[in-house]
Write a protein that binds this DNA or RNA. Structure first.
Length: 453
RNA sequence: UCCAGAGUAGCUCAAUGGUAGAGCACGCGGCUGUUAACCGUGGGGUUGUAGGUUCGAGCCCUACCUCUGGAGCCA
């Protein structure tokens, strides 16, 4: 029976009759025996096997090159040499699949740019193996976090006919041929349909029934964004809470990010160690800081004052009523507060129609969580639950309430204060791993002009 | 989409406008309880694409393509 290398390496006693299966990372030959290092993706570490001349299957050894898949049976013994605790004394080796000399992965370092061009093989590298193990583990942690707090997981639709959700350009979904603008009523859904840019509006309907809900699924933006932080397809987490205000929303966002950092530190230590060594030297101390210290919270108006009084010259001037530029966000998180920072109560002009208006008449209950190095990782708000205010906001933003009749209905029937946020899973992963490019934390990235694999 | 920078061997990079090179990888030989092994040796190129300038272009000019960094949009 096959044993994963992860559990082999964790053994506390020598063991007879161990079978491992995986891919050769490197082989070093001696006259009387060979060292084979095997990796099966179950963990970062390799298992070193020692294959004596004459071991059954030994004649295939020349073909067991980097990248080849093999099976090794043997006895687990303490390694006499430095570098590893255990090694496997092979009693039988078997070649399963060849990897000829064109195998592109080498034993030495590759750039992430090159590895992106071989996205089908890059999970076999140390870096990407670690990234995708962490991704999997944190996806689990997301569900654990919400389920433990009695949030209900809701599958909001991928295809939507909500015309302008205000979150960006949308991908059109159609079965029409020729001019797809001409007769949308003859299209598959009888109207124009798109890939979702957010499950929030649908999520609100479920929060106004099941109290606390969350979504966790793919989201699509057709923006022509070409940055290290944007992808056309990404995974978003959107909690929504009934009977909750902005304060509770900010509390949840902060607790969530802290919980994810804690989970990563506690369950992905080996992989994080790789990132700390090769990607981001500050990673572990930053994660500890995030776990230990409360986030800074500052109203938008105050943030603007801080930036204006900073004496720092910005490329774009700081002005009340304008969105904070990347350089402004970076100044706040990286130089002024040196901490994750939640900015809240933004001017209503620069925020969407569904955000709740404050009593000052000028601001809405929006909140963005900004983190050093990445910028916005959470965008959220307390929603406008008052029917008259919502309709007024829609007029202000030049939207037709008829297009949102079911959303408006929520304010007609048992309306409640409620709040939620959207969090980009990949941006969270970037923050927790130190990986600086979003294309390197998603298995097969979709960006403008690129949908290979 | 805008502003910079880059594109030379499988990979990472050199090369005053004058015969395209190194390290690693790969092949072969040797050595060794090895650890990104080591020593010797060999093969490997339409210099991103298309034009142009020049006696001569990897190098200069133009256009396009791709990638990287920054910006905008956002998560």
């Amino acid at each position: 029976m096959r044993t994963l290398i992860k559990s082999v390496l964790l053994e506390s006693e020598p063991r007879q009759g161990v079978t491992v299966k995986g891919w050769v990372r490197t082989r070093r030959d001696s006259k009387a025996f060979s060292f084979l290092e095997l990796n099966d993706g179950s963990c970062l570490g390799n298992l070193q096997a020692v294959v004596d001349v004459g071991t059954p299957g030994w004649e295939q050894l020349p073909h067991m090159t980097t990248g080849a898949s093999i099976v090794i049976e043997g006895n687990l013994v303490p390694s006499p040499a430095a570098g590893q605790k255990w090694e496997l004394r092979a009693t039988r080796v078997e070649l399963v699949g060849l990897a000829d000399t064109t195998y592109p992965l080498q034993k030495k370092g590759h750039t992430t740019e090159f590895l992106r061009t071989i996205a089908h093989l890059r999970p076999r590298s140390n870096l990407y193996g670690a990234v995708f193990r962490v991704r999997s583990r944190l996806a689990y942690a997301v569900h654990q976090f919400f389920q433990e707090r009695d949030f209900v997981y809701v599958h909001t639709p991928i295809i939507t006919a909500s015309d302008c959700e205000g979150a960006g350009e949308m991908f059109r979904v159609t079965t029409l041929k020729g001019n797809i603008e001409e007769k949308p009523e003859t299209d598959f859904f009888g109207k124009k349909a798109y890939l979702t840019v957010s499950g929030q509006l649908e999520g609100e309907t479920f929060a106004c029934a099941l109290s606390n809900i969350y979504t966790f699924g793919p989201t699509f933006r057709a923006e022509n964004s070409n940055t290290a932080r944007h992808a056309a397809e990404f995974w978003m987490i959107e909690p929504e809470m009934a009977f909750c205000d902005l304060q509770g929303d900010m509390d949840l966002g902060e607790a969530f990010i802290k919980a994810m950092a804690k989970h990563a530190v506690e369950h992905c230590a080996e992989d994080l160690g790789l990132f700390a060594k090769f990607v981001d030297k500050e990673l572990l101390s930053r994660l500890q800081f995030v776990i230990d210290r409360p986030f800074v919270r500052v109203p938008y108006t105050e943030a603007v004052e801080i930036l204006k009084k900073s004496g720092h010259t910005f490329e774009f001037p700081v002005e009340y009523g304008q969105n904070l530029q990347s350089e402004h966000e970076r100044f706040l998180t990286e130089r002024h507060f040196k901490s994750p920072t939640t900015v809240f109560n933004y001017p209503k002009e620069i925020k969407p129609f569904y955000m709740r208006q404050n009593d000052d008449g000028k601001t809405v209950t929006a909140m963005d969580v900004l983190v050093p190095g990445i910028g916005e990782v959470i965008g959220g708000a307390q929603r406008e639950e008052r029917l008259d205010h919502l309709l007024e906001n829609m007029r202000f933003h030049k939207l037709d309430p008829k297009d949102y009749w079911w959303y408006v209905d929520l304010r007609r029937y048992g309306s409640v204060p409620h709040a939620g946020f959207g969090l980009g899973f990949e941006r969270l992963l970037m923050f927790l791993t130190g990986i600086p490019n979003i294309r390197d934390v998603i298995p097969f990235s979709r960006t403008p002009g690129n949908a290979d694999f």
